[in-house]
Simulated assay, not measured.
Amino acid sequence: MIIFDLICTDGEHRFEGWFGSSNDYADQQHRGLLDCPVCGSANIAKAVMAPNLGRKGNQQPVVSRTVDDRPEPPTVAKPVINKVAVPAEYQEMIGKLVKAQEKMLANSEWVGDKFADRARDIHYGDADEKPIHGTASKEEVADLAEEGIAALPLPLPVLPPESKN
């Protein structure tokens, strides 16, 4: 996983995006799948990020001295933990949602970015009727809706089968 700081160029809203790789980010950006969680704008770019670099191996830590010129023990930096406390009832609810989605997708076929085409084929009788899931841009979903083809977003993200270990 790679985390990018993203910025909405319309409203200058900053947020994080988690991607499987830099190529995943570029692909989602190209297909218009990224939007601002604050205002919904699709004008998203990577924000400038400072690299997380450690101290060089040849650099010594700065040792401060006490009043009587004895070295103070070096302070140890504590790791920053970005863990948010989630109430137990939310954890339970998310767990139930995960199980429900897994049950829904158990008999569904992953069609990747061919979702809109496959949904049309099924709707118009050119393919056997069966549950499918995949990815589609906002425009593709809007076009499907105009044609009377129902397509609903999944409540939780789904990793493509080829991305799973």
Rank of each mutant, 00 (worst) to 15 (best):
A42Q: 11
V62Y: 14
D69L: 15
G20N: 10
A42C: 07
G57C: 02
H30T: 12
M49V: 14
R55K: 13
Q60M: 05
Q28F: 04
G17Y: 03
A47E: 13
V76R: 01
A45R: 11
G40P: 05
A50V: 13
R55Q: 10
G32R: 13
F19C: 07
H30K: 15
D69A: 13
L33D: 07
D68E: 13
V67I: 11
W18T: 01
R70F: 14
S64E: 10
P51Q: 11
P74A: 00
S64H: 12
Q29E: 11
L53A: 04
D69H: 07
Q60W: 07
G40Y: 00
Y25Q: 01
P73R: 09
V48E: 15
S41V: 09
A42D: 08
N23R: 15
G40C: 03
R70W: 15
I44M: 09
G54Y: 09
S41T: 05
H30A: 10
P51M: 10
Q28Y: 00
N23A: 15
K56I: 03
W18Q: 10
G20F: 08
R65M: 15
V63C: 04
C39I: 08
N58D: 14
N58S: 04
R31C: 03
F19R: 07
Q59S: 06
K78L: 12
R70P: 06
P73F: 07
A42N: 10
R70I: 10
C36L: 12
G54T: 09
A47S: 12
A77P: 01
V38D: 15
P74V: 05
L34T: 01
A77C: 06
R31I: 00
R31S: 02
T66E: 13
A26D: 13
L33T: 04
I44Y: 01
D27Q: 12
